[in-house]
Structure formats: structure tokens, C-alpha cells
């Protein structure tokens, strides 16, 4: 291992450890926000695999999230141990992504985006038509945990943080490894990559599966956390849009961009929500347009630019 790699892992361990002790200082409100940030960061980090590394603009995040949430919730009502339902929610979403990828990963650009966008709608209809198993449009109640409110806040925060840590560790492996290099080549020129012997289909599928597995598990945790899910909630199109916005905010294809983006988006949401209650969606839209126009490479590019200028001065 080179020094650079060791530094990365030390920074990773220290960062996660610092986040883990937050409950000592924060109240329930802070923990709720922190849990949401961690969940957003999982969604953004996941989208970064397919959207950032491979540059395939996926809008399937909501589909994976909802699928994971329903798999996990249904299993919980059947009495399967909690952690297993989360794991199976993630694996179910990953398996679904593998099949879905076979069907739509040959499409490129806008065509891929549109194909991936309708998947959540199809799944939503599927849930609506199976009320016996999933509760249909009425939604599904998930068994409550036998914990106090304060304990639950801490439990879900730590669970979501652990999931984020796993997704970030996976991202570090992929970014540093051969698959990250291959995905970068596919992003820049898929034909050329294929000519040189890169199995583009396999690496795109890997990126798509990675963009699903942690999202599915996050959906499962979300179902347990909120104790009630319904199709419009967990297949909400915003769940597909927000990860993309967060990654754009932070920095496409970077390791820390998704986390930075998750923090900023939640901060913006809290501020905008309080002050523009009736038009928060519009305000969010304006921010997105401004970002794409003025900061197309995200905040991480700004940080790097400043560091570069300092280094030169």
C-alpha cells in the first residue's frame, strides 16, 4: 500500500468515528437531521457509481429505494429478523438492477435516463395491484421497535451511518481500483474502451448494481424508521432527482462530493422549507439551474481550484 492509500483509510476511519459519537452532543432533532443526511449521502454515493463514474444518467434510485423498502417491510411483517430484512432489501434491489441493466444499459444519454425514470412508476403500479401482500395504495404498517424514542433516534442514526460507511468504503475501493479506471474510460469513450478489450457491459452492470444495493438497504431502514410506507412516498420521483442534485452540488465522480452535496442539500431544504413553504420545490429548481450554469463540476472543484491557486502563489 502506498502512503496515499493509507492516508485515505485513516481519514475514512477518523471521519466515521467522529460522526458516530454525535449522539453524545446532539438532541433528537439533530439526530433526525443527521440520519437524513446519512441517508441522502448513501443515495448520492450510490448514484455516483452509475451517474458519476460511468456517466449514465440514472433516474432509477427511487425504484431501488421503494423496492428495498417494500421487500424489507413485508419481511418485517412476516417476522424475519430486522437486520436480515435490510440486507435482503439491498440484495433484492441489486438483483433487480442486474436484470434491469441487461434491458436498458445498451441505451445511452437521454434514452437511458427516460428508460430508468419509468421503472419506479411501473413498480408503484405493481404495489398498488397487490394489496394482499403489500397493502396496496393504503400503505403498509411496519412493526414498531421496542425502544424508547431517544434510543430509536440513536439506533437509526448509527444504522444509517454504518450503511453510509459501507457505501463510502466500496466507493473508495472502486475509485482506486481497476474497475474505476475502466468506468472512467467508458465514460470518456465507450467504443474506444471496448476496442481495447474493456468489457463495457460488465462494468456498466457492476456500476448499476452498486447504485442499487445500498439504496435498497436504505429503503429498508427508512421503512423501519418511519414505521409506515406507501407507494407514493417510497417511489417518489424526488428520490431519483435529489441524489443527482447532491452529486452535482458536491462534485461529479469524486469520493467526497456526494457527502458534501448531501449536507448542503439538507441545509438548503431546511432553510428553504421554513422560509418558502409554499414554493420550496420552485426554489430548489432555481438552485439546480444556477448550479448547472455556474458550477458544473460542483463544490469540490472549487475547493481544488482554491488549493491550486494557493499552491501557486
Amino acid at each position: 500500500m502506498t502512503r496515499n492509500v493509507i492516508t485515505t483509510w485513516i481519514a475514512f476511519a477518523v471521519g466515521i468515528a467522529l460522526c458516530a459519537v454525535l449522539p453524545i452532543f446532539g438532541g433528537n432533532y439533530t439526530l433526525r437531521l443527521a440520519t437524513t443526511v446519512a441517508m441522502y449521502a448513501v443515495l448520492a454515493q450510490s448514484w455516483n457509481f452509475i451517474g458519476g463514474l460511468a456517466a449514465y444518467p440514472s433516474f432509477a434510485t427511487a425504484a431501488f429505494f421503494g423496492l428495498g423498502a417494500y421487500i424489507s417491510a413485508v419481511l418485517q411483517t412476516k417476522g424475519v429478523p430486522l437486520y436480515w430484512t435490510w440486507v435482503l432489501g439491498g440484495l433484492g434491489a441489486a438483483l433487480f438492477a442486474a436484470f434491469l441493466g441487461g434491458a436498458i444499459l445498451h441505451l445511452r444519454g437521454h434514452y437511458f435516463a427516460i428508460a430508468s425514470l419509468v421503472v419506479a412508476e411501473v413498480l408503484r403500479e405493481l404495489i398498488n395491484t397487490t394489496p394482499d401482500l403489500t397493502g396496496g395504495g393504503m400503505g403498509l404498517n411496519v412493526p414498531a421497535l421496542k425502544m424508547s424514542v431517544g434510543e430509536q433516534a440513536q439506533f437509526f442514526y448509527h444504522a444509517m451511518l454504518a450503511l453510509f460507511a459501507i457505501s463510502l468504503a466500496t466507493a473508495i475501493f472502486v475509485h482506486r481500483g481497476k474497475s474505476g479506471f475502466a468506468l472512467q474510460c467508458i465514460k470518456q469513450n465507450e467504443d474506444a474502451a471496448s476496442i481495447l478489450g474493456v468489457n463495457a457491459y460488465a462494468y456498466k452492470s457492476l456500476a448499476f448494481v452498486l447504485s442499487a444495493v445500498f439504496v435498497g438497504a436504505a429503503g429498508g431502514m427508512y421503512a423501519t424508521w418511519t414505521r409506515y410506507i406507501d407507494p407514493t412516498d417510497v417511489f417518489d420521483v424526488l428520490l431519483s432527482v435529489k441524489p443527482l442534485v447532491m452529486v452535482l452540488l458536491g462534485g461529479v465522480g469524486t469520493l467526497l462530493g456526494p457527502v458534501v452535496g448531501a449536507f448542503i442539500l439538507l441545509a438548503l431544504e431546511e432553510v428553504v422549507w421554513r422560509n418558502f413553504l409554499t414554493m420550496h420545490a420552485a426554489a430548489l429548481g432555481v438552485i439546480i439551474v444556477a448550479l448547472v450554469l455556474y458550477l458544473p463540476n460542483g463544490l469540490m472543484s472549487l475547493v481544488r481550484e482554491i488549493a491550486r491557486r494557493r499552491g501557486r502563489a
Binding site: 469513450n189 467504443d191 476496442i195
Partner: peptide
């Protein structure tokens, strides 16, 4: 080894 039409380099690498 195929040297494709229009070069097809990885331009940002």
C-alpha cells in the same frame, strides 16, 4: 488492434 476512425482517444486522460 483497432485504430478507429476519428482517433477516439480518452480526451480528458
Amino acid at each position: 488492434a483497432h485504430v478507429p476512425e476519428g482517433r477516439r482517444l480518452f480526451s480528458a486522460m
